[in-house]
Design a protein around this nucleic acid. Structure first.
Lengths: 159, 159
DNA sequence: AGCGATTAAATCGTGCACGATTTAATTGGG
DNA sequence: CCCAATTAAATCGTGCACGATTTAATCGCT
């Protein structure tokens, strides 16, 4: 009786893609990406750029490192993304005079102005999804617990 | 009282990243990727390559289009990935003589031989994660339902 | 004060992912 | 039978993502 979920290795039982929890997450992530794309196109943002902007609307005037910690991204990912946001006139990047190693990020007027239209996007995306608030928050709780458990395993395995 | 989850747009209430279900999924996906990476490195595979191999171990001798449907990937993503697997000697790509538009994928001996060591990977990854089988399958069920609901919304919104 | 260690961001190379387009083969209608 | 429409994969351009490395600034220790 194969009954798994990213936990096989019962010898002799073959791997089945549909048993992989990681594959479910992978697909769900692609689905969100695909659904957000057309809505964000109107704002001139990609999906990761949108997440970065949401983080900045919440807490402005942070360093690249702080934003990276918030989003779970490396500077090697964030720096080019931020340069694109800067090129669009949404964010200003400037070395911190008190510590020239750091780059501080500040929203421009245009960056702040984008928040209003951006607020409508998530609801628009879920329109017609037939998911109650309870559904959404329950699923989110499950996934957050999963992420926490995985990260614990990660640090435990670290050598 | 802001209580959301990818469903804000209550006017006047600002967006909060931690309310975004999509962000939870985005982070969880990155976490899986990061955890799998060192384990798959030993097999010489990336995470998407591993998923493709799992699909092929399950059903061999499929077309690029069929594998793409299984994984949810476009040919523009899959073709280069498959060329890398071919370069590693794990997969053979050949035009179908009955329909030269299609390319059929077949595991090589080496490709099939990789299944045995690959079987151990998922369990190894979850070692120390403190998640029961029930946890895993419950979470997986929730995410699969989410994906289904999102896809329904997608086709409903299609114009 | 000076210099090695640390820290922050940027850079580089590889690979994933998509939409739009292209190429080539098959299908189907007249 | 032929040729327009369709289909399958590949190609192209853009952007995300990471690890490893580099560059530059600050810290800390003597």
């Amino acid at each position: 009786m194969p009954k798994r979920s990213d936990t096989p290795s019962t010898p002799g039982v073959p791997l089945r893609l549909d048993d992989f929890l990681c594959f479910s997450v992978y697909r769900a992530n692609h689905t969100f990406n695909r659904l957000y794309r057309p809505l964000l196109e109107r704002l001139g943002l990609t999906y990761p750029q949108y997440l970065a902007m949401v983080a900045l609307w919440e807490v402005d005037d942070v360093t690249v490192g702080e934003l990276g910690a918030r989003l779970g991204l490396e500077s090697s990912t964030l720096t080019p993304l931020l340069k694109r946001l800067e090129a669009q006139g949404l964010v200003a990047r400037a070395r911190d005079p008190n510590d020239e190693r750091q780059v501080r990020l500040r929203l421009t007027q245009a960056g702040r102005a984008l928040e209003a239209p951006a607020c409508a996007v998530p609801a628009e995306m879920l329109a017609g999804a037939d998911l109650s608030l309870e559904d959404l928050s329950r699923i989110k709780g499950e996934i957050d617990r999963l992420k926490t458990a995985l990260e614990r395993a990660e640090t435990a395995a670290a050598g």
